[in-house]
């Protein structure tokens, strides 16, 4: 059976939080429920599950790659052109700092941008279920579940005070 979204629209944050409780009582797993808002709400405001992110891995990898590239580039240049400057050793760290630092930063920045795109699942080619009123302060409770459970979900959303319950067009 296909999983399809259903959206409950609420005009107050408290009602949306109640809907979260009602869905949980109806046996809908937390992972199937999402709260759509026009501005960030404090962690746990709707009694929702805690979301963890692993975005920090991306700049770490990017930075490491940039650092390695910078070290290789500068050390290989120093070895390829062995000029003694100011009586310092041919392979010395201070002259390498500028390029390795820049390489590290650029790698970290590029990978952070890629990480954000990947982790936020952007771009998403298929338009999702949404309502313009969310931009005016309404809260959307989006449930992605089996079609057989849609009746149950609709009841839970309606009883919690949803001003409207929407399904994908064609349903």
């Amino acid at each position: 059976m296909a999983r399809r979204p259903i959206l409950g629209l609420f005009d107050s944050a408290n009602s949306a939080a109640d809907a979260g409780d009602a869905l949980r009582q109806a046996g809908i797993p937390d992972t199937d429920v999402d709260f759509l808002t026009d501005a960030p709400y404090p962690e746990g405001a709707f009694g929702e599950r805690e979301e963890k992110h692993r975005l920090y891995i991306f700049p770490f990898i990017g930075g490491l790659l940039g650092l390695t590239t910078g070290i290789l580039l500068t050390s290989m240049t120093q070895v390829a052109y062995p000029l003694v400057t100011g009586g310092k050793p041919i392979l010395s760290l201070p002259p390498m700092a500028v390029v390795t630092y820049e390489g590290t930063m650029l790698g970290a920045i590029l990978f952070t941008v890629l990480g954000i795109i990947f982790e936020s699942r952007l771009p998403k080619l298929k338009a999702g279920l949404y309502d313009k009123r969310i931009t005016e302060g309404y809260i959307g409770v989006l449930v992605n579940t089996e079609e057989t459970q849609h009746g149950q979900v609709e009841t839970a959303l309606g009883q919690s005070g949803a001003v409207e319950v929407k399904r994908e067009s064609g349903q």
Binding site: E51, G128, I134, L142
Partner: peptide
């Protein structure tokens, strides 16, 4: 869409 995941990221 302003989902929790998107706001966190």
């Amino acid at each position: 869409y302003g989902s929790k995941r998107q706001w966190i990221h």
